[in-house]
């Protein structure tokens, strides 16, 4: 044990201070709880719009809206005051809100502000939480998309376009500051009891629209695995882009059925108007630009993460879906919508 700590100190000195910059996503909370009490982490700083419910009193919370003009000075001041060593950017929107303009501001302006404040102060490492959705779902996708594959998601849709742009900013930052460690984690579809994102909202409906005659394989990552991957790149230095995915894949319709919901096949020519209408009325969980993801595969290869820092997913799909379904059911019971 003592030797372990020696090793840790040799790598990190007295433990590093980690700052989480976010926009109140569920991943921020999960990672925060995991970082508090880790011996390799000295202090956890939270720079976010909202505090994380039930967070440890030792967390240094600063209420900052990353997208506000002028926030870069404030962030820079916080980073230097707290002597932050690692900044984790969790600000990219994971949910589609009803106010896409705000998401857009957050994804582009927020990233820009964070980048410029990281230039002002000597932060040693920055980590970006991205998603494998950025590869785009295309008929000619390889079943093992590697990290250097082109990002072909629909750029005209801000949800994807802004994230591709954020990644580009990170890569540019890495080129300009070769003394800093820059890591981008492209995480697969994260699911779990506490995770909220586009895909979980889509899956959470009782009736889930799918494309008639298509059943693409999906890559699901348990939230525990995703957090573990972030912890790995926070505590050790692994510069570069990494896919964080599970090796096993599960067909979409099977996933929906395991959760206990019903897939509703929609004929493809009708899919866009139907999903669009359902989305705008708040009934279905996905708008039109996501339709390719219900049709074509976007399977990423996790080989690089496995070989560089030994990340392999520990939850098979059925357990990921089971955990998600149980949490959904519990919520419904608590809300009085269903009996135990």
């Amino acid at each position: 044990m003592a030797r372990d700590f020696d090793k840790i100190r040799r790598v990190l000195g007295d433990g590093t201070t980690v700052a989480l910059a976010g926009s109140a996503s569920s991943m921020t909370g999960l990672l925060l709880h995991r970082l508090v009490g880790d011996p390799r982490v000295r202090t956890v700083v939270l720079v976010d719009r909202d505090p994380v419910p039930g967070m440890d009193p030792s967390v240094r919370y600063y209420s900052v809206d990353l997208s506000q003009p002028g926030s870069e000075e404030r962030i820079a001041e916080i980073l230097s005051r707290e002597e932050v060593g690692v900044v984790v950017h969790l600000g990219l929107s994971t949910e589609l809100s009803r106010t896409p303009d705000l998401d857009h501001e957050m994804d582009t302006q927020g990233t820009m502000h964070l980048m410029s404040s990281c230039t002002m102060v000597p932060v040693r490492k920055i980590v970006l939480a991205s998603t494998t959705m950025l590869y785009g779902a295309h008929p000619d996708n390889s079943p093992w998309l590697a990290e250097d594959h082109e990002l072909r998601a629909d750029r005209t849709f801000p949800f994807f376009g802004d994230k591709i742009e954020a990644e580009r900013q990170f890569v540019e930052f890495a080129h300009r500051h070769d003394d800093r460690v820059v890591t981008i984690l492209r995480v697969g579809l994260v699911l779990g009891p506490n995770t909220k994102n586009v895909f979980s909202h889509y899956l959470a409906r009782r009736i889930v629209p799918v494309l008639a005659g298509f059943d693409p394989p999906m890559q699901l990552v348990h939230e525990v695995d995703a957090v573990r991957a972030f912890l790995m790149v926070i505590t050790d230095d692994h510069p570069g882009v990494f896919n964080i995915v599970a090796d096993a894949v599960v067909p979409l319709a099977t996933a929906i059925r395991i959760v206990g919901h019903a897939p509703l096949p929609v004929v493809e020519p009708l899919a866009s108007p139907v999903l669009g209408a359902l989305w705008s009325f708040g009934v279905a969980g996905l708008p039109g630009p996501f339709i390719p993801y219900l049709k074509y595969p976007f399977l990423a290869s996790g080989e690089r993460a496995a070989s560089r820092f030994g990340f392999t997913a520990s939850f098979p799909p059925v357990e990921v879906l089971g955990d998600f379904a149980r949490a959904q059911k519990r919520r419904r019971i608590e809300a009085g919508m269903e009996e135990a």
């Binding site: 079943p143 096993a248 067909p251 099977t254 395991i258 206990g260 019903a262 098979p316 799909p317 059925v318």
Partner: peptide, 25 residues
């Protein structure tokens, strides 16, 4: 309750299928 039927239908549909498929589907 619709969930009663949904459970049975889902059990029927998942019965003849594997949860996991290979990368080629």
């Amino acid at each position: 309750r619709p969930s009663f039927y949904l459970e049975r239908v889902n059990r029927f549909f998942v019965a003849g299928r594997g949860v996991e498929v290979d990368r080629f589907g």
